[in-house]
Amino acid sequence: MVDTSDDMHELGIRLGASLQAGDLLVLTGPLGAGKTTLTRGIGEGLGVRGPVTSPTFVLARTHPNLVGGPPLVHVDAYRLSEAIELDDLDIDYARSVVIVEWGRGLVDAIAPGWVDVEIERPTGASQSEVDGDVADAGDEPRRIRITRATAR
């Protein structure tokens, strides 16, 4: 369980510090679950240039690394319907850490393995719009499941 958005951010920092080029994470959860908050923390843990914001309207953003590590590629696949559309983004998976929000079912054709991160927030939890990002309106506990996944 992650109790607050600050805790979600801290989890991201710890995750980011352990990631390396070639790592692919797929984040799944409802609007306001904390996917972008987690990604901000991962970016901080990796040492990338920020701010890390939701790439909803541009589909993908690349954040260069400021400390000699891999860049972070942050993808919002919500509006994509097929894996080929994700592949068309021409992402350098081998030399980057890639996070794909809403990517479940799309990365199977692109990568042999990834880390699946599922975030559940309480039913009826509220959300608000902040600078184009759907942000947590309150600090409600989230359940997070992190598992290794492989292409079928």
Rank of each mutant, 00 (worst) to 15 (best):
G69P: 08
V115H: 05
S18L: 10
I119G: 03
E85Q: 14
V97K: 01
M8S: 07
G12K: 10
P141T: 14
P112E: 15
I119Q: 05
G103V: 09
V98L: 07
R61G: 00
S81D: 12
R49T: 14
R148P: 05
P141C: 10
D131M: 13
G132E: 03
Y93N: 02
I84C: 03
Q127E: 15
V97P: 01
V107T: 13
V75I: 15
D76L: 13
A77Y: 08
L11T: 06
R152G: 07
G138N: 12
S18T: 15
T123L: 14
G43N: 02
I110N: 00
L15D: 01
A135W: 01
V48E: 00
V107S: 00
L38D: 02
T37E: 06
P51Y: 11
T28A: 12
R148F: 12
E101L: 11
G50L: 13
T37P: 00
G41I: 12
W114H: 11
V100P: 00
R61M: 09
S96C: 13
G12Y: 09
T28V: 13
D90M: 13
F57Y: 15
A94Y: 07
H63I: 13
D131R: 08
I99K: 03
T150P: 00
A151T: 13
G105C: 11
G16I: 15
L59P: 00
P30M: 12
A21N: 03
E129F: 08
G16N: 04
V107E: 00
H74A: 05
T56M: 04
A17N: 07
A111D: 07
A60H: 03
A60V: 15
T28D: 07
P141M: 11
D116N: 13
L25A: 06
I13T: 02
V73N: 03
R95K: 11
D3F: 15
T39F: 04
D23V: 02
